[in-house]
Amino acid sequence: MSLEDAFADGPAFIPYLAAGDPDYESSLEYVEALERGGADIIELGLPFSEPIAEGPTIQNAVVRSLEGGMTPTRFFEFVEDLDVSVPLVCMTYYNLIYRYGESEAQGTSDASSAERSSADCRAAEPRDDGEAASKGPRPFVEKAASVGIEGLVVPDLPAEESGPLREACDEFGLDLVFIVAPTTRGERLERMMEQVSGYVYVQARLGTTGAQTDVSDQTGASLDRLAGYDVPKAVGFGISSGEHAERIVRSGADGIIVGSALVDIVAQGHERGTDPEAVADRLESLARELKDGAVAGTSQRPPHPERT
């Protein structure tokens, strides 16, 4: 099933979890619980050490996951081990995509410690990155496609720098989801909408990710700016309850993206040493609340001209 198809039967519920948080096995269970709770697409975070777009909740998830041994290679195994049928989107930062496959290319050069043993007697040698650098994002995208990932979200890659990744995604049939911020307008919006596929991630408010007690009113304005574009609009950043989900869908969203509120459950379970099964149940139940909220939002939606 393609990403866009996931929006065909009513509003799509798109939960996010960091893969491997807090450990590989529990995380598999948690992601599967999201599907049982009604997920239509699942965003899986591949943790990067410098997550500049994330608030504290997901920063901590990234730390747990990295400490649990998550790497890009493990991430692809994780995706293969997952028993879910909904489409998966990988959310990660560009350096991991850009560097994937470099270790093979560089061979043992990183480990040539013998020659580097003295900090005091070595000048820079020309780096032998030429060939490796030219590979760019292609190996990552090829691998992602081969394990069944349907799309990518890359929070630190604006449309201006996305050419090589867009090309690789086209070659291997992946969607490239872009984030539209409340500050994205005019020409920038147009440029981005030329490149986007799958769905557009509408950032509900300025700032970083994180559960909020209220939903921003910037969402409606963003959705209005996007009304003319024929691509599903999923709203994220701050949604934490069924009631939020309902309101967001009522204001015109085609889907909702929820991360931090779910990650909070994982974090709590980890801190309190809760049995993973109980954590999975809690995830499933919040997932269901969010999905039900989103569906309720459609039924109350004021009649408005359908997208053509």
């Binding site: 500049i52 604006p158 201006e160 720098e161 911020a181 500050t183 307008r185 700032g207």
Partner: peptide, 12 residues
């Protein structure tokens, strides 16, 4: 070089 930043920062 370049500009690898979240979209929200691009207008600024």
């Amino acid at each position: 070089g370049g500009q690898y930043v979240p979209e929200a920062l691009m207008p600024a």
